[in-house]
Nucleic acid binder design. Structure first.
Lengths: 110, 110
DNA sequence: CCGAATAACTAGAGCGTCTAGGCATCGGAG
DNA sequence: CTCCGATGCCTAGACGCTCTAGTTATTCGG
């Protein structure tokens, strides 16, 4: 039983949420599922992490929400990426790349 | 003036410190310099981040410290990686790799 | 002589994620 | 028909880590 890595590093969750929403509007619970699926079951975002994060992200104008229904006919709040959100996603991906590069460099050291 | 990325993601600092010490014993201030240098000036660890982290890491038995002197003849506390620290470094590198892989997967999604 | 760099340390703020709940609806198993 | 798990939203509070912003002391160069 290989436990998936649940705990995320602070700061990566926003990027993942924005990325998930960049593939199309989705409701909160669906964001969790999409991230889980896209990551190959490696990332399991907790609801208690997601909803506060979505709220924060909406406050910053990176996503917009509206109430609607899922295909299965359940009430759900649909989130859509805004243009500012797209920019933010690019910023965070860039930031991640630079950090990852820096860490690669440190780890290459003998 | 390209500002180096100062802020680290939570959890990466331990790995960087352990990695720095895996190259040989060093004092706190030197750890900052070594990480800065190895990362190609991309990572700037704050003293206020480092010293608490070193204390925490020592409490967990991953490093040992003793007072000594630097080559320039200054008093300094020298930190040495323990065997448990080596193992922990491997664990954290593995954990990082898995997270990085998962994020790559999510980002590849179209 | 004085400022910058080296060296160690602390208090407290700030932030984000997690644990651990609560609530409601729906489908399927028994 | 009943109960449980999955879906769906949410909150409070704990927790952990890094940062800001200080303090103290020594050494070296200009």
């Amino acid at each position: 039983m290989t436990e998936p890595k649940a705990d995320l590093l602070q700061g990566t969750l926003d990027m993942l949420i924005l990325k998930a929403l960049s593939l199309g509007p989705l409701h909160g619970y669906g964001v969790i599922q999409r991230i889980h699926q896209l990551s190959g079951e490696m990332l399991a975002v907790e609801q208690g992490s997601l909803y506060p994060a979505l709220y924060r992200i909406e406050q910053r104008g990176w996503v917009k929400s509206r109430w609607g229904t899922t295909e299965t006919g359940r009430r759900a709040k649909l989130y859509t990426l805004t243009r500012a959100g797209e920019k933010q996603l690019a910023v965070e991906e860039d930031s991640w790349d630079r950090l990852a590069l820096a860490i690669v460099k440190v780890r290459q050291a003998t």
